[in-house]
Design a protein around this nucleic acid. Structure first.
Lengths: 148, 148
DNA sequence: CCTGAACATTTGACAACCTGAACTATTCGT
DNA sequence: ACGAATAGTTCAGGTTGTCAAATGTTCAGG
């Protein structure tokens, strides 16, 4: 479970700390932006996933790394507000395809655009540096799980 | 080249998306690393804050951007496991100073070091790029709320 | 000194999130 | 057609989070 690791490289360690702070800030902004539309963070995440199209519950759970039983409740609440619909997949009637409604996608798109996470921390960088950052992030994420 | 900030600078937008993914990955790892020590994410965050020294409840709440009443429960659980102690501040007996115990700081430091968030995404960068990334993140966070 | 406003923390009620186990319905291999 | 596997739900239980109402403490003005 624990692979040996070269004695913690100080730069890596500092980057990890910086990331932790950034994650905190980003998280807070996301939660606030969601709350401003009377959505919770979890609901906003599901809605964001559905912007790409309908999706089985199980796939949502896998993408968000949580138990399927958890998704049931979240989708329940989104459904009761008319943000998503549940439909049985004609191909396999066990699976239920969750699809965002018009107002659902609208809310999600709106939220995404209001996320000027950038504005505060990112504004400190000039355009050239921003491109540098983009390239570094791209490379870091190249091997990771694709965004869904 | 006036750096007018149009609502949707493509580079900024992409960086925001990349950050969102990175935040997701980091968050998952953090939660897992905490769970491996039977801590929740929130508990781990409080413990991490206390590595810098004792701190009033209110300060913890402000730093984590949540209600003070929320901290009460989290500290309760940490206290019942011997990870922190609550002591009245001699200067002002209204405030309670929360301090990490030996095992508390030990757990937090251990958790931090096990966070080789590095391993997956960061391993894709060579040392020089890692320094570049560190500098960019430093500059982004310079204006933001300092960690403690 | 006394009183009331301000403050730090706690308590209680409530909602959402999350997990794990047990259940239902459907599919699929043999 | 039977049994194993799969998708989703339900239920019980714990943690996080909010808000409003307490409690205890400090501090400024009269």
């Amino acid at each position: 479970m624990e692979t040996q690791q070269p004695p913690t490289d100080p730069v890596t360690l500092e980057v990890t700390d910086l990331m932790a702070n950034l994650v905190g800030i980003f998280h807070r902004e996301y939660e606030e932006a969601a709350a401003a539309r009377s959505l919770t963070g979890a609901q906003a995440k599901v809605l964001a996933l559905l912007r790409r199209g309908p999706m089985p519950m199980r796939h949502i759970a896998q993408t968000l790394s949580c138990e399927p039983s958890n998704i049931t409740g979240i989708v329940d609440r989104l459904e009761s507000r008319g943000f998503v619909t549940r439909e049985a997949d004609p191909q396999d009637r066990r699976v239920k395809l969750v699809a965002a409604t018009g107002s659902g996608t609208a809310a999600s798109v709106e939220l995404r655009e209001s996320l000027h996470f950038a504005r505060e921390p990112l504004a400190a960088l000039d355009p050239e540096e921003r491109i540098q950052l983009r390239d570094l992030l791209r490379r870091m994420l190249a091997g990771a799980v694709p965004p869904a």
